[in-house]
């Protein structure tokens, strides 16, 4: 089971933090700090695994990937395969890349909500449900359409009724 997905930049600022088990916000922040302090001390070209038991508790594993200015971090337990998790990070990043066309940190920063939607298509309740980025993108596009539609439908009546009510 996947326990948490984090995206941090190289300064330690979280860009996305999703926990699949409830954790109080202070704990979340502490965890993010701990993860970053481990990650930033690691050299380039070393393995992508970090011993996470001290950070997250028993049986926790952590893999991360470093892309440009961002760290993508997955924390999970023994029910997942480490290499598969690395692949999953790849899938996630690929999907972002396709969504934002050459994703960079700014896209991640400004599309916070979309990032969540993408992640929710891949993982639900800590379970990996989708590993194909095309499927994810299909779902996301439809989702945005629906969102936009719901906004535009309501925009007119609401403002009109607003005026009328006055």
């Amino acid at each position: 089971m996947i326990k948490a997905v984090l995206v941090l930049n190289t300064q330690g600022k979280p860009r996305l933090a999703k926990f699949y088990e409830f954790r109080p916000v202070e704990k979340q922040q502490e965890l993010i700090r701990n993860v970053f302090s481990v990650l930033c001390s690691r050299a380039e070209n070393v393995s992508n695994f970090v011993d996470a038991e001290s950070i997250y508790g028993q049986d926790a594993r952590l893999v991360y990937k470093h892309f440009a200015t961002l760290y993508f971090v997955f924390i999970f337990d023994s029910s997942e395969n480490e290499l598969a998790m690395l692949d999953l990070i790849q899938v996630f990043v690929e999907t972002l890349d396709k969504c934002f066309r050459n994703v960079c940190e700014l896209d991640v920063v400004y599309n916070y909500s979309k990032m969540h939607s993408i992640l929710d298509e891949i993982i639900i309740g800590g379970q990996v449900l989708e590993t194909s980025s095309t499927e994810v993108i299909k779902a996301i596009e439809e989702l945005s359409r629906l969102e936009a539609a719901s906004n535009s439908i309501n925009l007119v009546p609401k403002s009109v009724s607003g005026w009328r009510a006055r």
Binding site: P14, R15, Q28, Q29, Y112, E147, A149, S150, I153
Partner: peptide
């Protein structure tokens, strides 16, 4: 957003969350 990224407490807004969830518009619901 503030809660997830900066660790701001949002438990006080629980009832507002319920209100927004029950909106008929998808964007709100989401």
């Amino acid at each position: 957003y503030l809660s997830a990224i900066y660790g701001i407490d949002m438990s006080w807004a629980a009832f507002h969350v319920v209100e927004v969830m029950s909106s008929s518009r998808f964007a709100h619901k989401k």
